[in-house]
Design a protein around this nucleic acid. Sequence first.
DNA 1: CCAGACGTTGTT
DNA 2: GTCTGG
DNA 3: CCAGACGTTGTT
DNA 4: GTCTGG
Length: 223
Amino acid sequence: MCGRYSFSLPPEAIRELFRVVTVLNLQPRYNIAPTQIVPVIGLEPNGERALRMFRWGLIPYWSKAMPKSAPLINARSEGIADNKMFGDAFHRRRCLVPADGFFEWNQDKSLKDRTPWRIVDPERPAFAFAGVWEGWRSPEGEIVRSFAIITTNANEKLARIHERMPVILKREDEDAWLDPNNAEPKLKSLLAPYDPTRTELYRVDMRVNSFKYDDPACLAKVE
DNA sequence: CCAGACGTTGTT
DNA sequence: GTCTGG
DNA sequence: CCAGACGTTGTT
DNA sequence: GTCTGG
């Protein structure tokens, strides 16, 4: 699955890699955690891509209050089109979640080693997760936009540490994911495990475990 | 009809 | 152990 | 995802 | 809001 990731590229690289004009006032993020407000990419009414700051952890639009349970940071791709919680967002509110890598811990918690891994694509400096989003009106009348990252089965590279992984879109599939005219069969075909030959894992320092550390050392390789 | 759930991951 | 917060 | 708190009464 | 369960 995916419960922590990074997005630390400079604005010029973001504009070029994701074809966005606005780059807001983005600070590099080395250790993004659930509930934080982070950039995602959606389509404007005019069809142009735009970066917007959304909350990681989807709040269903019918929620009466901010949910107290674990935030909905992931959505399983299997059955998502018919799912009560995410179905409407899947059909009508898809987004790209830009990242330059993500973190995984050993799934088996009986293994005492809680040293995280970082996963990157050695052939490109950044990629996008497939995401869905919602708008929610709080009791105070504030509109909160939030998102979840879609997951699928782990590929053979990740399977050694975890059985799920986030959906990473091929670059040539990003437009199809955002296209409001694409229907269910096409969209579902995009939600597949990532190419294992482009999935590289390496160990990083345990400091990543704490979201309080958000600096370049979080990305550094350790033995 | 109304009431109650609606999610993922991991762990047991 | 379990819940909350980031 | 992991880290960190988890409580009351009374007094300042 | 919308679906499921009784």
